[in-house]
Amino acid sequence: MAQMKNMFCRFGMICIVGVFALLSGCMWGRVKVNDPSVVDSARSIKPGSTHISELENILKVQPTFRMPGKDMTLLGYTYSDTKNNGLMLIAVNFMRSTTVTDTLYIEADPVTQIVRKVHIPPKRTLEWRFWPFGD
């Protein structure tokens, strides 16, 4: 009985050390710029009735840029998400970083400044990739 208990303890320790050994060269990192949840807030904007001045209350942020034009005023809310993945071996390190940038665009009438259309970008999934070669 004591011998079996010893064996399990040793096996457990080997597993724990093994997991740490396997993971010890791995690196995961994430960087987000601005808040992608602005897209969810934008769904409550009513085209045809919401005024540009109400957007800050609805979206809780200022636009990244504003482009006035003769047929429309365009506001953009840009955000990005980056996944960094690496394998740090003794002799050499491999790293790969994948980024997706997106912009929520809001079109408004240049005269009345009433929102005409909200362009919501599709949701994109990012993969964790550490191998720097290939596509």
Partner: peptide, 15 residues
């Protein structure tokens, strides 16, 4: 020479 060798790749907007 081998210690501190790093190969990295950054890609933005693969889609």
């Amino acid at each position: 020479f081998l210690d501190g060798c790093k190969i990295a790749r950054d890609q933005v907007n693969i889609h």
